[in-house]
């Protein structure tokens, strides 16, 4: 049993890396229609976009307990042979060890640029999505509560939602987001989108003609924000003010997600 020690994990990781991408890779995520929440959906979509950009085959499996199955407690995660890897960055790293990379042609300063923007997206978009879902009363009561509790029987649904809420609030407090007002959150989103739009300028993707994991991440978040019906659609309206970002989202959707239906 390979367990516990980081060294063994590392060795196993390296050994597994030598094998090619298997055919039966599965991506686990919560139920899209009735269960998944805005931030989780964004992250799942980002990973899907990344894998599609790398032209890797995978199958999406919906599981109500995906969050608990994940080694890090966050969705999505992929199962590739004996490996179970969760969240975008570790998955990108894992794919890199197989010799597949979207950033191989980037300069090192571009790579660090990309990482900076990715952490900006994580920090601003993810936290504001969490804020909206868990701290905005209307959204919490009308969307988050029924959706998060939908897979549990009464009274476990209330308990689980309440536990998760306290976890999220703890995280937001730690990041200094809990004390913000909703208007401040909108302002942060606007600033973030402005920064991204500035970086994008008129280019097809952030770093030239080919997409990177940053494009995948931004696609995941913005597409979810734009398409998820919420009682409060102000955040989607903010994003709509940036046509270059909308174009990027549409391009990724057309290039990487519409193909399936056309085939």
């Amino acid at each position: 049993m390979f367990s516990g020690t980081p060294l063994l994990d590392k060795i196993q990781y390296e050994l597994g890396a030598q094998e090619p991408w298997p055919k039966d890779v599965k991506l686990y995520q919560p139920y899209e229609v009735e269960q998944i929440l805005l931030p989780d959906n964004a992250n799942c979509l980002a990973v899907q976009a990344f894998l599609r950009m790398c032209n890797l085959t995978f199958e999406v499996v919906s599981k109500s307990n995906a969050e608990f199955m994940s080694p890090s407690g966050k969705v999505p995660f992929i199962r590739c042979g004996a490996f179970v890897i969760s969240e975008l960055e570790p998955i990108v790293q894992f794919v890199n060890t197989k010799g597949i990379s979207l950033t191989s042609e980037l300069e090192s300063d571009q790579k660090s640029d990309m990482r900076a923007y990715m952490s900006l997206v994580h920090n601003v978009l993810e936290n504001s999505e969490l804020y909206l879902c868990w701290c905005d009363k209307e959204t919490y009561n009308e969307v988050t509560k029924p959706r998060n509790g939908s897979v549990y029987p009464w009274p476990l649904n209330h308990l689980q939602t309440w536990t998760k809420k306290s976890h999220v609030i703890k995280r937001l407090k730690m990041m200094g987001w809990f004390s913000k007002t909703i208007d401040q959150v909108y302002h942060e989103v606007e600033n973030c989108c402005q920064a991204l739009a500035d970086r994008l300028e008129g280019k097809e993707f952030f770093f030239g003609k080919n997409p990177t994991e940053l494009d995948a991440l931004i696609f995941g978040h913005l597409f979810t924000i734009l398409t998820t019906p919420l009682p409060n659609s102000h955040i989607a309206n903010i994003v709509r003010n940036f046509p270059s970002l909308i174009n990027l989202v549409q391009r990724v959707e057309k290039d990487y997600f519409k193909r399936d239906t056309m085939r």
Binding site: S3, G4, D9, N65, V84, L156
Partner: peptide, 21 residues
């Protein structure tokens, strides 16, 4: 609340993780 004991636990066990009442 069921969770895997170690990273090395089999996937069949991992699939069963989660909360039940």
């Amino acid at each position: 609340d069921l969770s895997v004991l170690t990273k090395g636990s089999s996937f069949a066990i991992r699939e069963e993780s989660g909360v039940s009442l």
